[in-house]
Structure formats: C-alpha cells, structure tokens
C-alpha cells in the first residue's frame, strides 16, 4: 500500500522509507552515522526539507496508526525532518507546527500543550523532550492521572503539568489543590523511591 504513498507525496514517502530502513536495522552507531548521511543528502537539495515537511500531512493516511512502534518511528522521523542543517534541536515554532500535525487526535492535551510551549518555553525543543512527549501523551489522560512527578520527565513536561494543575485548581478548588500541593512538595524534596 506504500506505493500509493510514494505516488501521493514522493519526497516524504521516500525519505521516510529510508529513515525507517536505517532505524530498524544495524547497530546504533551504524544507524547514527547513516542518519547523518541521510540528513546531509536531504540538505543537499535546496528546499527539500520544507517540501518533505509540507508533505507530512499527506503521508499520515498511509501510516498504520495502530502499530505503536511504527508510529513511534514515524514520530521520530518528523523530528528528524524538522531539524535544520545539522541542528540537534528544533525551534519552538517548528516543533509546535509539527506536533499539531502528527499528534492531532492522539493527545487530548495537544492544544493546551502547544499553547503552553509557545507561551513559556524560550529555548529550542530537544530530541529528548520531543520523544518524551509521545510517551507522556500515551500514559497520561486528561486529568493527568498516570503522571508520576518523581519520574524522569523533561522539565518542560513537569512545568506543563504544574501549569495544568494550577488551571484545574482555579476551576475546582478542593481536588486540584491537593494534587498541586503534592507536585510542588515532590519537586522540592527528593524522594529516593524509584519512580
């Protein structure tokens, strides 16, 4: 069925196929090197990155969204495409635009997340934060249940949760306040229990 994808959005589909091939085979050192080369190849053609990025919405219908590991790979691919000229991180503007495309319908707090990042984040988005957001979107529901403040979430995600609790607090005093207190206390004191 991917032949149709190649027909619909040739550059994006081809890049993804190459990316997928590199990531799913070989040692991590090998694929690291191969990805650097792929990145250079893309940058070798003027404007190629933008073309691929623009084609991503067209590519989505061809990805089996139920296949978790395939989707993870696709999600990482989007970050790979967003990186400009050997940069390790992605500008906030780019990252938010990409999130809105790739996580649409898959993350209930997507809108709030994107607004939060645009408003409070000052630095670029690192690959780690990008990847961890997918994990976060999978394990947390709308009430932020399933979020463990002692976990190794990136600080940006911690801050987001804190902000969400503050918002819930202003709408529902009693229950949200408790959870907010929990969070701030765990942020200050350290709990040696493993997350």
């Amino acid at each position: 069925g991917f032949a149709a994808a190649v027909a619909a959005c040739p550059s994006a589909a081809e890049a993804f196929l190459k990316y997928y091939g590199i990531v799913s085979g070989g040692t991590s050192a090998e694929s690291r090197q191969a990805l650097v080369e792929l990145s250079l190849a893309i940058d070798g053609i003027e404007g190629m990155r933008d073309v691929i990025f623009a084609d991503i919405p067209k590519l989505i219908p061809f990805i089996d969204l139920e296949d978790m590991s395939l989707f993870s790979c696709f999600y990482d691919f989007v970050f790979f495409i967003c990186r400009e000229k050997g940069q390790k991180s992605v500008t906030i503007q780019r990252a938010v635009a990409a999130w809105r495309i790739v996580l649409s319908g898959r993350f209930r707090l997507l809108d709030r997340w994107c607004n939060f990042v645009e408003k409070y984040q000052r630095h670029n988005i690192s690959e780690d934060t990008w990847q961890q957001l997918l994990a976060f979107s999978r394990c947390v529901n709308e009430d932020l249940e399933g979020y463990d403040p002692r976990g190794a979430w990136p600080v940006l995600i911690d801050d987001f949760v804190e902000q969400m609790h503050r918002i819930y607090h202003s709408t529902d005093c009693s229950s949200a306040m408790e959870s907010q207190c929990n969070i701030s206390s765990t942020l200050k004191g350290l709990d040696p229990q493993p997350g």
Binding site: K88, S89, S126, E127, D128, T129, Q131, Q132, A135, G151, A152, P154, V155, D158, P194, G195
Partner: peptide
C-alpha cells in the same frame, strides 16, 4: 533534571530504550 536533559542532548547520556526512567 535540566542538566540531565542537557547531557542527553550532548550525547553523554541516553535513556534506556525500554525504560525512560533509566
């Protein structure tokens, strides 16, 4: 936490593939 994230970006550390808390 911020320093850990920074060290991940600078390739001193990486997260375990199966357990993001490691």
């Amino acid at each position: 936490k911020k320093r850990i994230e920074d060290l991940i970006t600078r390739d001193y550390l990486e997260r375990d593939k199966d357990n993001a808390n490691t």
